[in-house]
């Protein structure tokens, strides 16, 4: 924020990731020790490496091929992934942390809002399943409104209205003008059939 701290760049930056751990200027942020999330990422990466190596052995090799077949590159990638996972796991266990990615809209001091993430993920999944039932505009309007609410938009009417108008305009532009295939739902397709 432009008001407040005299040197906002420095203060926000110091609060992110391992830099804070290094300087120790932000004792409020407990950012030392082994991070469970980091460790989970490493385990997943290691699992991916193992999967690549094991499943590559199941790739069928056509009898005719006399040089390297479809297995060689997967083995190579699997080995690189596994080696990276081992090296990264070693670093993470020694307390190394990756700095969280910056964005203009991210408050590095804010606690993680898992609720918002969860609502958005569920809303997105829901709209994916609804598209072929009620059409893209309606499904995406509901998703839009839920996401806006999760991120702090006020009221009921405005998010729904904004999402509704945007989705219908976008649908008309892309479907009627650019010929993209998107189910419009019974009502909208009837209303625009004269186009």
């Amino acid at each position: 924020m432009s008001s407040g701290s005299p040197d906002p760049d420095v203060s926000t930056r110091d609060a992110t990731g391992s830099h804070a751990a290094a300087t120790g200027r932000h004792p409020a942020a407990p950012r030392t020790g082994v991070s469970r999330g980091e460790l989970a990422m490493v385990v997943l990466l290691g699992a991916l490496g193992l999967y690549l190596l094991l499943d590559a052995a199941n790739i069928a090799i056509p009898g005719s091929s006399n040089t390297i077949g479809p297995r060689f590159f997967p083995y190579l990638v699997g080995a690189v992934v596994l080696a990276t996972a081992l090296a990264l796991g070693f670093r993470v266990l020694r307390g190394d942390r990756g700095p969280s990615d910056d964005s203009e809209d991210i408050d590095p001091d804010a606690p993680t809002s898992w609720g918002a993430v969860g609502i958005i993920a569920v809303a997105f999944l829901g709209h994916a399943l609804l598209i072929n039932v009620v059409g893209w505009p309606l499904a995406v309007t509901l998703m839009f409104a839920l996401v806006a609410w999760a991120l702090g938009a006020r009221g009921v009417v405005r998010p729904l209205l904004a999402g509704g108008v945007l989705s219908v305009v976008v649908w008309i532009v892309f479907v009627k003008a650019l010929g993209v295939a998107l189910p419009g739902g019974v009502l909208l397709e009837l209303a625009t059939s004269w186009f």
């Binding site: 997105f124 409104a145 609410w149 998010p159 945007l166």
Partner: peptide, 16 residues
């Protein structure tokens, strides 16, 4: 642009 609408809009275009 209010951020709730910005990110809702980005997801709308992602879906499209």
């Amino acid at each position: 642009v209010p951020r709730p609408y910005l990110y809702a809009g980005i997801l709308l275009f992602a879906s499209l």
